[in-house]
Design a protein around this nucleic acid. Structure first.
Length: 202
DNA sequence: CGCAGGATGGGCT
DNA sequence: GCCCATCCTGCGG
C-alpha cells in the first residue's frame, strides 16, 4: 500500500505523472474487490488554479476535504450523475488534487462487469465510468487512502517517459488561460497497455 | 429561498 | 455532432 506521505511530500504535477502505472484498488460494496492500473490523470494545482474547485482559497463544505493533508479521497458528483474520484495531495491547507480519469482493468474483472452490467472494456476511460465500474461513490468522500475501501499499490510498472502524453485538461473551459495548461497526463500506447492482461495479480 | 451551471457519458442522428 | 439525464453546490436576493 502506498503511504499517505507519498501524496503529502511530492509535488502534485510530479504525482500526476508518477501515478501512471500505479494500481488503484477498491472494495466498497457487495460486488467485492477490484483493481486497475492508472493510465490517465489530471493535476489540480490549488488556490491559484482557476480550474480547481479550491481556486481563490475557496473553503466550502464541498471543498473542505481538499484542505486536508494528502492521501485522502475527494469524490464529488458531476452533472448530477457521475462520481469523480480525486486523490488529495500536498500538505494541510494546500488544496491540491489529482483526478483519476482512466484505468486499465487488472483484477476482479467479474466485479467490474457486474457493476457496469456489461462486458468490461479493455480500458476504463472516463472519470465517471471508472468510478461506476469500481464502486466508488461520494459515500467514500474523505476516506483515507490507507483504508481497506480504497487504496493504491506500486507494483513497479515502469512507464517509459516517452509514452506519457500530456495536454490541456478536459472540460475546464471556464478556467480562462488555465484551461490551456498541460496538466493532463495519459498513456495511449496500446502495445504498452496490452502487456497487462486481466487478473495479473490473481 | 431560487436558480444557473457543472473536472460526463451514452445513445442516436 | 447533438441531446439530455439528473442533482448538488454556490451564490445572489
Amino acid at each position: 500500500m502506498i503511504p499517505g506521505k507519498y501524496f503529502i511530500e511530492n509535488d502534485t504535477l510530479w504525482l500526476a505523472k508518477d501515478l501512471l502505472g500505479k494500481y488503484l484498488y477498491s472494495n466498497t460494496d457487495e460486488y467485492g474487490p477490484c483493481a486497475g492500473i492508472i493510465t490517465e490523470t489530471e493535476a489540480y494545482m490549488g488556490i491559484s488554479d482557476r480550474a480547481s474547485h479550491a481556486y481563490g482559497n475557496k473553503r466550502t463544505r464541498r471543498t473542505e476535504i481538499m484542505f486536508q493533508p494528502g492521501g485522502v479521497a475527494y469524490i464529488y458528483l458531476c452533472y448530477g450523475i457521475h462520481h469523480l474520484f480525486n486523490i488529495v495531495t500536498s500538505q494541510q491547507d494546500s488544496p491540491h488534487a489529482v483526478l483519476i480519469r482512466a484505468v486499465k482493468p487488472a483484477s476482479g474483472i467479474e466485479n467490474f462487469s457486474q457493476r457496469l452490467k456489461k462486458k468490461v472494456p479493455l480500458l476504463l476511460n472516463g472519470p465517471g465510468k471508472l468510478t461506476k465500474a469500481m464502486g466508488i461513490t461520494t459515500a467514500q468522500n474523505g476516506i483515507s487512502l490507507e483504508s481497506n475501501k480504497i487504496w493504491l499499490a506500486d507494483f513497479k510498472v515502469k512507464v517509459p517517459s516517452n509514452l506519457i502524453q500530456s495536454g490541456p485538461r478536459i472540460g475546464v473551459d471556464y478556467a480562462g488561460e488555465d484551461a490551456m495548461l498541460p496538466y493532463r497526463f495519459l498513456i495511449t500506447d496500446t502495445s504498452f497497455l496490452k502487456q497487462y492482461s486481466y487478473d495479473v495479480l490473481s
